[in-house]
C-alpha cells in the first residue's frame, strides 16, 4: 500500500489547484471538498485518526456548507465569474514560493528524521501515541460520528430552508 500516500498527496495538490483555478465557484468549492478529504486521508495514514475525523467534520462538512450557503445567498449564485490574473501577483507568488523552497533546501533534513518510518507502518509497535489515539477513538468515536450526523442533517436542513425561501421569492 505504498502508493496510497502518494495518490493522496497528489490528489490534494491537484484539487487545491482546481479550487483556485476553476471559473465556476460551485465546482471550485467541490474541489476544495475533495482536497479536504484527501488531507484527512493523509492525516489518517500518518497515525492521527482523531485529527482526520475533525478535518472531515470541520473542513469537508461545515466549511464547505458555509461556502455553498454563501454562493447561494449572493445574487448570481455560483455562476459569478470574476476572473483576473495579475501577472505581478503570479510573479510575486512564484518568487515567494521559490524563496521558501530554497530555504527548505538549504536547511536540509536532519539525518535522524529522514530515515524514521511512520508510526503506523511499523507493525506490532505499541507506543504511547498509538495507544492514546486508539483510546481517544474508542472513547470518543461514537460521539464524533453522532456530531457528524447532526452536522450533516443541519446542513441539509439549511439547504432545504434556503431553497424554499428562494422558491417563495420566485413566486
Amino acid at each position: 500500500m505504498d502508493w496510497v500516500p502518494l495518490v493522496l498527496t497528489v490528489s490534494a495538490t491537484v484539487f487545491a489547484l482546481l479550487a483556485v483555478e476553476l471559473e465556476d465557484l460551485l465546482k471550485a468549492i467541490l474541489s476544495l471538498f475533495f482536497m479536504c478529504v484527501s488531507i484527512a486521508g493523509i492525516f489518517w495514514i500518518l497515525g492521527a485518526p482523531y485529527v482526520a475525523i475533525f478535518q472531515l467534520l470541520i473542513y469537508a462538512g461545515a466549511i464547505v456548507i458555509l461556502f455553498l450557503a454563501t454562493i447561494m445567498l449572493t445574487e448570481r449564485g455560483g455562476h459569478e465569474r470574476i476572473e483576473g490574473r495579475d501577472i505581478l501577483g503570479i510573479l510575486a507568488s512564484i518568487a515567494l514560493g521559490s524563496t521558501l523552497l530554497l530555504l527548505v533546501w538549504r536547511m536540509g533534513m536532519p539525518p535522524s528524521v529522514s530515515v524514521v518510518e511512520p508510526a503506523l507502518v511499523e507493525e506490532g509497535s505499541k507506543t504511547i501515541g498509538q495507544d492514546m489515539s486508539a483510546f481517544l477513538w474508542s472513547q470518543r468515536g461514537f460521539e464524533i460520528i453522532l456530531q457528524g450526523t447532526i452536522l450533516f442533517a443541519s446542513s441539509l436542513c439549511c439547504l432545504a430552508l434556503m431553497r424554499r425561501k428562494k422558491e417563495g421569492l420566485e413566486k
Partner: peptide, 24 residues
Amino acid sequence: LATYLSCALILFIIGLYCLVAKRN
C-alpha cells in the same frame, strides 16, 4: 517526511498565489 512536506509546501504556494492574484 519530504513527501508530505513537499505537499504542504505546494499547498502553501497555491494558497499564497490565490491570495495574491485572485480578485473574488
